[in-house]
Design a protein around this nucleic acid. Structure first.
Lengths: 314, 314
DNA sequence: ACCGGCCCCGAAAATAGCTTTCAAAGGTGA
DNA sequence: TCACCTTTGAAAGCTATTTTCGGGGCCGGT
């Protein structure tokens, strides 16, 4: 057997994914001069190098393609192609680790890209907070109450009205009798009709919105089961709530007082309620969902109109 | 201009790193059959596919090299090589994120704690996907249009109606003239009044909701700037949209067909629009926000009623 | 100091993989 | 049914990677 079949000396057995850095350090001085240069360049900027071709990397390091390939082999990969792939993976990993770089608040002069990143990050944070803070016992009791309710009234005004409507829409779709009221007068008018076995839900971030508290109080006094979805666990609304579901009370900055985190948080709670109820009433919920889906189908256009695309007018 | 220079139709401008998942979901049904097969294989096993050559992937999916390359282009990369790199990066990232523990869908018999965790995780995922996939150029243009609009009409029905209302509420609070219409007839009636300088926004997850497309078309034909917030970047609604803001089109499982991920995604887009507009019009937006906040104060009860807490009836 | 041997290195040939072209097959609307 | 457009795979064309090959430097021996 020849002592060097065709310059294929697999120095290391492992084409490892991310142990790359260690490997480079490990081999360190045992590499030839130009191999070191290449390895160093790779270690210094994996992401950047992953975007280069052999030729480009050779040029950048002032070496030749052959040397680059040899270095890749030294590092344990079958060839440069695979080193490049590993480099990309490494870059992806790093990127995900350093993601929460944008924790701060949003400023007036942030570029749009930052705004998007910050908003997404903050809302994700809010979701995590809310999930962690949710009282499962209360949630479970709320699900029970909703699942067996004769009738469900939901109160919310302003931004919370939308959350209430979302809940009502969802519950309706699985066959429950749910109404969302955002008109305070109508809410009160309806609330006095409730009785034991009914459920009233109040959605209010501050927990101090009179227009929502009033109908809830009436429902409470008439014996309905009352649920408060609020960011203020000790706020006025909780006085008339049998069950309190806490939403995250993230501070709202100057540029987003109009309910962002709070809305996200409330919606998560609503979703939890909905899924919980849907699970508990699966036998009736599933067909109801299917039916409403079918009923909607004809309102969707299957394909784009065949006419040529109309150009935006000049 | 030739209609097809050399089969180089860069469907999407962004060769983004991690927006891949979102992109695949988004294009979804708008791809050709074999492209779907390839995309699906890629989405199902990014790490594995990143190790395959064009030929190998073509064979695995039962298609041809050409199709694989075309799919890579569809997903926004210059070619397969780059897709492969991105895949590797994605794999690396995933590996580092590794233990979301509760990745799977929600089952009928999941305990409530799991439901909460899964929902929160999925919605957070959706947020990340959406943020990654958002086209900043389109967003920026949309912000400009909104900020300078004479009048803004927003169309959405069903779950998307709530998103539309949310946007309208926010824009109103910073002094813009915005209306959300969820009644298809009224929407059409209003849309024919729009003219250049006005903005129409359509919110629809599927992008195929006739009740929303109709008013948007009218607005488009009358010269208003039209914006589509949709999960289907190639869906019918985009035919009449000057600007398209893509939302994540995560699959909705049996227990949550009623718009959860899609709603979260849409709301993030709405928030981005709002913050963007608020930034651009800060001088007028800030006082308007303050004023609306003041005006609301009296409707909040500062403290709990002094009466003793009423016990739940026995 | 000179010479021979060995290894390192880069230029260029060889090859594998990626991209493009082209024509046929499969639909779709008139 | 026919014409047209879309989609698809086979094969040609090209780029990037890998291998080969020979020049040149370093070291020990003479």
């Amino acid at each position: 057997m020849s002592q060097r079949a065709k310059e294929t000396f697999t120095t290391a057995p492992a084409p490892t994914p991310a142990a790359l850095r260690a490997r480079i350090r490990g081999l360190g001085a045992s590499m030839t001069r130009s191999a070191q240069i290449v390895a160093e360049a790779v270690a210094a900027d994996p992401a950047g190098c992953s975007r280069l071709t052999v030729t480009a990397l050779a040029e950048r390091t002032g070496t030749s393609e052959a040397t680059v390939v040899r270095t890749a082999r030294l590092l344990g990969y079958p060839g440069y192609r695979d080193l490049r792939l590993a480099l990309a993976a490494l870059a992806g990993r790093q990127e995900s680790d350093e993601a929460p770089a944008v924790t701060a608040g949003i400023a007036v002069d942030d570029p749009l890209a930052d705004v998007v990143a910050k908003l997404a990050h903050e809302e994700a944070q809010t979701l995590a907070d809310t999930a962690a803070a949710l009282d499962l016992a209360q949630l479970s009791a709320a699900v029970d109450a909703l699942a067996t309710a004769r009738r469900i009234d939901i109160y919310g005004v302003g931004a919370s009205a939308l959350v209430g409507q979302d809940l009502a829409q969802k519950l309706l779709r699985i066959g429950l009798i749910a109404h969302a009221h955002h008109d305070p007068h109508l809410a009160v008018t309806n609330s006095v009709l409730l009785r034991p076995g009914d459920v009233a839900v109040a959605v209010t971030h501050s927990g101090a919105t009179g227009d929502v508290i009033d109908p809830l109080r009436h429902a409470f006094e008439r014996g309905a089961t009352t649920i408060a979805v609020t960011g203020g666990p000790a706020s006025p609304v909780t006085h008339y709530a049998d069950l309190v579901l806490a939403t995250s009370a993230a501070r709202e900055s100057r540029l987003r007082p109009a309910a962002m985190s709070s809305r996200t948080s409330q919606l998560l709670v609503v979703d939890c309620l909905f899924v919980g109820v849907a699970q508990r009433t699966y036998d009736t919920a599933a067909p109801a969902l299917a039916a409403s889906y079918e009923a909607l189908a004809p309102r969707h256009r299957a394909t784009a109109p065949r006419t040529a695309r109309q150009e935006p007018r000049t």
